[in-house]
């Protein structure tokens, strides 16, 4: 595979934290992960294996102890509007309306006019089907709606890469399924951002539902145990035999 096909690459990334005793506990060691153009990458692993850390390293929020992150051919140094992260809980500010919450992501952008920013926000509100709710406050929304606001905020910057940190784990199964369907729909639409998505999850069905390829992590410090391509046609059917086989396979890899 040529380099031009790679959007982001983690090269020999090691990270950990020092314990009070003074020693260093490594969470991940010598990790190499590539995110390709147009790819939906799933990362699964037991809880506490450093999945969230990897996502934060990819977002430029955390600087790894060693190793580099290459994004669009350059070393990633800190956060950039080209990469968005959506948290597990919708981190909306309760004192801002839905519109203001989304606008927050564009607030510091100097390359856009005020009008362009407002248009962009409206566009995203429509995309996540929250057009009538722009002046509502987060506490007036249901959990699923809040997560959609968070999604809109993550997408309003037109990111190339969207990072999802267990985005459905706080929702009831029905809501999460409809959100998964929506995300998949957006994903299919090549005119919409982002180019690639990385989703961290411990819900394997969710990952098989959405991902093109799954990286399975395990061990302490975490290493890549396997990389499993998911070549099912979309939209995927949860009840198909192939689907079951893949879910089983990933389960046995983790446990």
């Amino acid at each position: 595979m040529s380099n031009s096909e790679i959007l982001m690459e983690l090269r020999n990334v090691t990270h950990g934290y020092s314990l009070r005793s003074g020693s260093t506990l490594k969470v991940i060691e010598n990790l190499n992960i590539q995110v390709r153009y147009g790819e939906f990458l799933g990362i699964v692993g037991p809880s506490g294996c450093g999945k969230s850390t990897i996502l934060r390293i990819m977002a430029g929020l955390v600087k790894p102890l060693s190793g580099v992150v290459i994004f669009r051919g350059e070393v990633l140094n800190g956060t950039t509007p080209r990469i968005s992260l959506m948290h597990q809980v919708p981190t909306l500010l309760p004192w801002l309306t839905v519109r203001e919450n989304i606008y927050l992501a564009l607030m510091s952008r100097k390359d856009l006019t005020e009008r362009a920013k407002q248009l962009k926000v409206s566009e995203l509100l429509e995309l996540v089907e929250l057009s009538g709710y722009e002046s509502a406050y987060p506490y007036e929304l249901s959990g699923g709606m809040r997560q959609r606001v968070a999604l809109a905020r993550a997408l309003v910057t037109d990111p190339d890469l969207l990072l999802l940190d267990e985005p459905f784990s706080n929702l009831d199964p029905l809501t999460s399924l409809s959100l998964i369907r929506e995300l998949e729909g957006m994903w299919f639409d090549t005119t919409l951002p982002p180019i690639s998505i990385v989703m961290v999850s411990h819900n394997i069905e969710e990952v098989v539902m959405l991902a093109d390829r799954v990286v399975v992590l395990g061990g302490r410090p975490a290493k890549i145990l396997a990389e499993v391509p998911i070549e099912l046609s979309r939209p995927r059917n949860k009840k198909s035999e192939e689907f079951y086989r893949l879910v089983d396979e990933l389960f046995s890899l983790i446990s």
């Binding site: 934060r56 956060t79 509007p81 981190t91 607030m107 510091s108």
Partner: peptide
């Protein structure tokens, strides 16, 4: 919370 601090950094407020 940490997430909100991250938010500020993500969107370079």
């Amino acid at each position: 919370h940490g997430e909100y601090r991250e938010l500020a950094r993500l969107y370079r407020l």
